[in-house]
Design a binder for these strands. Structure first.
Length: 122
RNA sequence: UGAGCUGGCCGGGCGACCGCGUGGGGCGCGAGCUCCCCGAGGAAGGUCCGGGCUCCACAGGGCAAGGUGGUGGGUAACUCCCACCCGGGGUGACCCGCGGGACAGUGCCACAGAAAGCAGACCGCCGCUCGCGCCUCACGGCGGGAGCGGUAAGGGUGAAACGGUGGUGUAAGAGACCACCAGCGUGCCGGGCGACCGGGACGGCUAGGUAAACCCCACCUGGAGCAAGGUCAAGAAGGAGGACGCCGCGAGGUGUCCUUCGCGCGGACGUUCGAGGGCUGCCCGCCCGAGUUCGCGGGUAGACCGCCAGAGGCUGUCGGUGACGGCAGCCCUAGAUGGAUGGUCGCCGACCGUGGUGCCGCGAGGCCCACGGGGACAGAACCCGGCCUACAGGCCAGCUCAUCCG
RNA sequence: UGGGGUAUGGGGUAAUUGGCAGCCCGACUGGUUCUGGUCCAGUUAGUCUAGGUUCGAGUCCUAGUACCCCAG
């Protein structure tokens, strides 16, 4: 679970991260990561989730969200200081196990970090 | 023992590690840290009804529109619930029913059939009159036709055909008359608060269906919905849409042009006689300079309230056939807002499947052992009462039918 | 949260007041052709589900299911 502080609660930041952030996808997840160019104070990273109705009914959507929040909490330290991460779940995430979701999360996060080190992004 | 009917209840358990939200306590200047309590459902679901609550509207009445529809009760209210009545189904326990009005009016009843609604008559039956043919010496008889009239018994159609059965009667027939039965109307007696039920009397002999067709009658309904509504409260930067061009595989980015929004009202001062701003906290001075500033209202991003103690739950008792109500005692039992109530793992476990040269049994099957799988439907979003829908598996109580034993 | 609409063979669509469920494309079979296509003839299969009103329901009523749309 995530504390209130680490949650992304502003819809403006949500659309900002999805629009301008770098993207990496797997079969179950798509991650958007945006880092402010100027250091807007040393805030902690924030994580938000998007689980649409295509994933399933409310019970499975909530289950996917809870699993993702736990996964994100364990990986908070590897995010850049003031980064904004949006995790979007795809329909296969409904049937994926916790371990599979964790692997996909790690792979996508790894790809995002590598791209930022090689000076990617716009 | 088997098959069923009705009502009620449960709907995984234990543990370890790591977490989240409301509230409370402690520490800390503070950010925060730490401890404790509590933390999804019977449907939280669909959003089909009814209410509370909030804002708007409203003298009163009527029309329109929508809804409800046996009777009596319960309730804050209901299209809900209870009891009863009526009709239908079942051997039965029991179940089902939008169940007012068809002499207030209008409409419809396809096909078939003579005729489908109020009266009429196709075939037929019967009588009378007039021809014709045949038989007979004749009287007369038989057959068939036309016209006039009497009938509705029989025929056949249909979902439905103008009461049914039997008799008297007749030229043939007919409620024309009689008996019984069904049904209608009027008034009476008895029972019931009532819907209605039972009984007998009289009348007329008979009246079709459809209102989930229009309609009539009685009753009910002001509108919106917690994104209701309220409090606090930035910024003037730009935002939205469209057309065209460039870049990009694309998502998109960027440029030009057009449209629109960037609030309303009022006051004061000011536009070269300088409001206001900057240097600079003040004065002088210098520079920029056409709007500046104040009040009231409105309230976008955002924050907070509404927001969880309530038609509340449990137990007992009393009243009532029951729904339910009265009284007493005890309890506090989710309040999130990109949305908490959990994640991972282990053990147990109903239950299911497979196997066994195991045990019991005539058998169906039961028990035991091993292995594998392993909980259904489903997540509060202002609250409550119902309805409807989904649901693996299991428990309890009462009752019915069949069979066997005593 | 509030409101509206649709459902007819495999696909797309008709059905006047309730009165025999049609049409096009497709699929299949046969014929024509040396073969395929074209063409001709024929066959297949349907009113979303359940219940009700009615003599009779695609149509009317009630409940449900699925999908779509609109406003905030």
């Amino acid at each position: 679970m995530l504390t209130r502080e680490s949650r992304l609660t502003s819809s403006q930041l949500f659309s900002w991260a999805v629009r301008t952030g770098r993207r990496a996808g797997t079969s179950t997840l798509v991650l958007h990561l945006a880092v402010p160019s100027t250091e807007t104070a040393g805030r902690r990273p924030q994580v938000g989730f998007v689980v649409s109705k295509a994933v399933g009914p409310a019970v499975t959507r909530n289950l996917v969200k809870r699993r993702l929040r736990h996964l994100a909490r364990e990986r908070l330290s590897s995010l850049p200081g003031s980064g904004v991460l949006v995790v979007r779940a795809l329909p296969p995430a409904a049937t994926a196990s916790y371990a599979v979701l964790g692997d996909d999360f790690d792979r996508a996060l790894d790809r995002l970090e590598r791209r930022s080190q090689t000076g990617g992004g716009r």
